[in-house]
């Protein structure tokens, strides 16, 4: 078994962050957390996670902008982005897809769906990404 997939959670709401950490750890992921966009960028500069779980409403740089920057970064080509938003507007969904998100969840979300989706995304490498560990995603 290769190393556990690494997930970066960017979420400013403490309790939600706590629940996401628990869920992803339970799913066998390695988890890092950031409470705002700047911290997230700093963490991304140090390591390349397999997936970023990204809240839209953040203090400082918002989630859409962060997503665009991840997509613009060649180092992060293989990194999946799942966006979370408390605003269920069509335009937000559109913005998320345009920014390059792989999946988009509206709060409150089903934890089971989220975990399933995260697993699926981790097991299918991005088409244009460099080869990643194939065993990733197994729990």
């Amino acid at each position: 078994m290769s190393a556990a997939p690494q997930v970066l959670i960017v979420e400013d709401e403490d309790s939600i962050l706590l629940s996401l950490e628990f869920l992803l750890r339970s799913a066998g992921c390695g988890v890092a957390a950031a409470r705002d966009g700047d911290t997230a960028l700093a963490l991304l500069a140090q390591s390349v996670p397999d997936l970023v779980l990204l809240d839209v409403m953040l203090p400082g740089i918002d989630g859409f902008e962060l997503c665009r920057r991840i997509r613009a970064d060649t180092r992060l080509q293989g990194t999946r982005v799942v966006m979370l938003t408390a605003r269920g507007r069509e335009s937000d969904l559109q913005k998320g897809i345009e920014a390059g998100a792989d999946a988009y969840f509206t709060k409150p979300f089903s934890t089971r769906e989220l975990v399933t989706r995260v697993r699926t995304l981790l097991s299918e490498p991005r088409s244009d990404s460099p080869a990643q560990g194939s065993a990733r995603g197994s729990t």
């Binding site: 709401e13 309790s15 939600i16 629940s19 996401l20 628990f22 869920l23 409403m57 408390a86 605003r87 269920g88 509206t106 709060k107 409150p108 979300f109 089903s110 934890t111 089971r112």
Partner: peptide
């Protein structure tokens, strides 16, 4: 308001499911 309501709801739902 929607956003403000969704935030605690998200936590409540997530932890209930956990």
């Amino acid at each position: 308001v929607t956003h403000e309501l969704r935030t605690p709801l998200t936590s409540i739902r997530a932890f209930s499911e956990i």
